[in-house]
Amino acid sequence: MDPLLLFIYIFLFPGFLFLFAYALTFEYLDRRIAARMQHRVGPPFFQPFADLIKVLGKEVIDPDGVDRRIFDAAPLIALAAVMTAYLYIPIVGISPLAFEGDLVLVLYLLALPTILLFVLGWLSRNIFSAVGGVRAVTQLFIYEVPFFLALLAPALMAGTWSISGIMVWQQQHLWCLFLQPIGFVVALIGLQAKLERTPFDIPEAETEIVAGPWTELTGRRLALMHLARDASLVCGSALVAALFLGGPQVPWVISPAWLGWIVGFILFLVKTLAVLLILSSIKVATGRIRIDQLNRIGWKYITSAAIVQVAIVLAMNYWWVRA
């Protein structure tokens, strides 16, 4: 690829600049959808942007006895991990950076913010943060297994570990949503848990432990961590859209090529927004469950469902796909 084009792809569009803008728009839409469902008015469009700029400019407060460097670095690492993951997810057509196995890398990178939250919680010498951090990492072990299994099922079916490859395979066959409905549901649940949204907002349960690991975050640390969370909402939705909904691949032949890209991009927007709508609806319709209940439900039902899905995929592979 042309270095200039690559530069534009990574930094401007559909790279980081678009990611940030879209992440904040996502937050706005999420809050707005929730507000409308709850019979509230909700925030104006620029609210997340204004919040980000305001919080960025606020004073950074160091809790007593905290290692400042790690405290400064953790939000940056979290954001960097999510941004890197974003580059491998197809936005307009196949990602130019795609390689065989990028799905594993993306899953790993998307798990990093949670682990950093635990580190932040543990380091901030605050009892609420520590409890929240422990909860975050406990929750990680519960949802990460079914989430991985659910996202690996399309890879098994397509016979490739590349997100873009799976997308192309769906183009030739059928959306994985129809082939693996159980996996799709499990992936959405896992995504909701990964993003710590109700009913899985256990690590930051406001009424129990104030804000969990976020309690001692201030100023730009809070802003960056928040941005990382919004960006992972975009990445997660885009990932689910690519693996289960065919991603930005256009089912028709359109010429010229640039028009095809635009149509693909519009498809990407529609599909990620559909995923967001589902996630927001779950958030509005439920209360928070307890960590022990999540442990029970997670291992008993969600993981079993994911395993069943993988087994079905293996059977389908044997009888139908490869046949």
Binding site: M37, Q38, H39, R40, T198, P199, D201, A205, E206, T207, V284, A285, T286, G287, R288
Partner: peptide, 16 residues
């Protein structure tokens, strides 16, 4: 009670 278990929808609805 809804708010305490993170069920804010109930909170908004009853208060309305």
């Amino acid at each position: 009670a809804g708010h305490e278990i993170g069920f804010n929808t109930l909170f908004m609805w009853t208060w309305r």
